[in-house]
Design a protein around this nucleic acid. Structure first.
Lengths: 224, 224
DNA sequence: GCAAATTAATGATTTATTCAAG
DNA sequence: CTTGAATAAATCATTAATTTGC
């Protein structure tokens, strides 16, 4: 829930629906007066502030434009493909797929290096690429002790965190030994602790590192 | 369960139980390290991969949210039905507050349905209402038309936009002086709040940065 | 009872949003 | 503003429940 310390507005579905309706109705850049009215009315559905409305319209407008642009360019590319000989399709398709949002994390199409991270061949279909990355699955190299695997979408990437004592963040819910006999007794973790940990999740390095010298202060819950 | 040639992971009851227990314990979005631990330990009960764990938490979280949202929607519909009922004092009360000066320039009161309806199923109706309500642009002071709102140090300020047509006029500061509408107190919107329970806002930076303040020197490797 | 047909759950992908660094 | 990084939402797809007719 949005705790007191929450930094960001989480619109309720209704708020979003209404905002989108307004946008479609012609309100693209509400002025302050409008923003205030909108805010007041949306507050019926949940906590909301003027800035939330403002930013929402800003972003929404920007991204609608972006969407449109993307759609147009896609159409253009398709049209251009029609004029090309079938032999060229491989290439075009490939770059098409690279340009798709699904690959934004691999490399932007305007990136200087079009084949930066995952080596794929021209004939590799999108699907194949995805499967490819997943098949590798987790680690193997020993030095990844200190590595963090990060996932984005369907991809499984390896992130080596050179930062200090990253192992401190995730509390260990297991012993490294074999699984317990009574599974349910394994997790009588206090909600507080685990929730706290939860909020720290997301990749953003949770290192609460007062100094790098402290070796991994792992928390191991003892099994019954 | 999981046939040999199965294309997708079929969790064993034990695995599901453990995963659910962990979720309840607060693990909503395990990081890569946690995923690995979970995976290796759940593998005791059957074949499992990291991505399975990753997807499981993603899906579970999403579907819990979904459940809550649906519940909320139903409640909202009920509330709105109440609103339409002439005898409802709460809502009448609410609309009394709408009569405040802040809304005088909106034609809410001429509208057959003064409140933006959230009709999930009736797109046409929704559209109608919204157009009716919001299309009529606000007769605001023209001077803030080209204004821009900006966040500054947690405060919400109004700034004159230096963009296209910079009309210089007294900017309108509205956010700090909110109208005395107290809509939230009239209705139990706790459901909304609890919905956000999921949010587990990631935005909160978890790092209590150390002294050396070395920015996380991360290297992203892609597995071959 | 028991499969074929249907439907509900849920694993896996893809697309859209969000945040904030540059 | 642009864009990288991450998440959430939406969607696709397959498996399990279940219904149905025999």
């Amino acid at each position: 829930m949005s705790p007191a310390g929450s930094t960001r507005w989480c619109p309720t579905p209704e708020q979003v629906m209404i905002l989108e309706e307004m946008y479609r109705s012609g309100i693209k850049t509400p002025n302050a007066s409008q923003i205030q009215q909108i805010t007041s009315h949306l507050s019926f559905y949940g906590k909301i502030e003027g800035k939330n409305v403002f930013y929402w319209f800003q972003n929404h407008k920007a991204r609608e434009r972006q969407k449109l642009r993307r759609k147009l360019s896609k159409q253009l590319q398709l049209q251009q493909q029609l004029y090309h000989h079938p032999n060229n399709h491989h290439f075009l398709h490939y770059f098409d797929s690279l340009a798709s949002p699904a690959f934004q994390h691999l490399s932007y199409y305007n990136s200087p290096s079009p084949f930066p991270q995952v080596e794929v061949h021209e004939d590799a279909a999108k699907q194949q690429v995805m499967n490819y990355t997943w098949k590798l699955d987790v680690p193997e190299k020993p030095d990844i002790d200190k590595s963090m695997t990060k996932m984005y979408g369907g991809d499984w990437l390896m992130m080596v965190d050179l930062g200090p004592s990253l192992s401190s963040s995730p509390p260990c819910y297991f012993s490294t030994a074999r699984p317990p006999l009574k599974t349910l007794e394994l997790f009588p973790v206090s909600a507080t602790t685990s929730l706290k940990e939860e909020c720290c999740n997301n990749s953003s390095p949770c290192n609460i590192t007062s100094n790098n010298s402290t070796p991994p202060p792992k928390v191991v819950l003892t099994l019954p």
